[in-house]
């Protein structure tokens, strides 16, 4: 049909078109996006992850948590991520600036489990706060904490060791079939501690200028007059 050089040129141009249009344009327009300096607080947001949490993120990556958990709160009108009749997965939608410090952005594509972007900022179903003790126990044996949980156990992030002296302060309070043999205790490994530190660092609660004054369509009122059409 066509001589080969023209075919190649055409394919080259077509790919350049999408490469320049999507990859390059976005990199040039908001690839150099900066943090927001809050003069009142004297901090730049988003804040960097504390050291242990940064290590925990690597554990999160190597265990492939992203296969089941997203980390993005969609805007209103998209599912029920947040808002009045939402699941309360966040106080607001996720915006690009939230991810500025993430060396690897783990938006995820499956919600086999709940979204984790604001994990540390929200509460359990029974109203209690997420804390390390709860989380350790949940990772060790999910169904012992939430009976219907479908998450696999991460018992390999823990070790059973003999109790020496008063025992470790980090030992899990286990009962029943999960309890270790007498004289032994279950404590998280360093990877387990790092992972929990990471999960407890996940909160996008800071309100950036761009997250304020977002237009939301008003709830339709019966019999309300339309303005502007007098």
């Amino acid at each position: 049909m066509k001589p080969a050089p023209f075919l190649f040129l055409g394919i080259f141009c077509a790919l350049s078109f999408s490469f320049v249009g999507l990859v390059l344009t976005n990199q040039l327009t908001y690839g150099a996006f900066t943090t927001h300096v809050d003069e009142d607080e004297g901090k730049a947001f988003p804040q960097p992850l504390p050291g242990l949490a940064a290590q925990g993120k690597l554990v999160y990556q190597d265990l492939g948590c992203v296969a089941c958990h997203t980390q993005q709160v969609r805007r209103e009108g998209f599912g029920a991520d947040f808002g009045e009749r939402g699941r309360g997965w966040g106080e607001r939608q996720s915006v690009a600036r939230d991810y500025l410090r993430d060396e690897r952005v783990l938006l995820g594509s499956q919600r086999v489990g709940p979204d984790l972007r604001n994990f540390a900022a929200r509460k359990n179903a029974d109203g209690t706060e997420h804390n390390a003790e709860w989380l350790f126990k949940y990772l060790y044996a999910p169904t012992s904490v939430v009976r219907e949980s479908n998450m696999p156990r991460y018992a390999f992030l823990f070790k059973t060791q003999p109790i020496i002296g008063q025992g470790s302060s980090k030992a899990l309070k286990l009962s029943g079939a999960l309890a270790p043999a007498a004289g032994y205790e279950v404590v998280p490994t360093s990877r387990g501690e790092a992972l929990v530190a990471y999960l407890l660092s996940l909160k996008d609660t800071y309100a950036y200028p761009e997250t304020k004054n977002i237009y939301t369509a008003p709830a339709p009122k019966a019999g309300a007059k339309q303005e502007g059409h007098k």
Binding site: L22, V23, Y30, Y99, E103, R104
Partner: peptide, 13 residues
């Protein structure tokens, strides 16, 4: 790695 969610765009691309 590029910054922020530019990564997501590159990835979906």
């Amino acid at each position: 790695p590029v910054r922020g969610t530019v990564q997501s765009i590159v990835h979906v691309w």
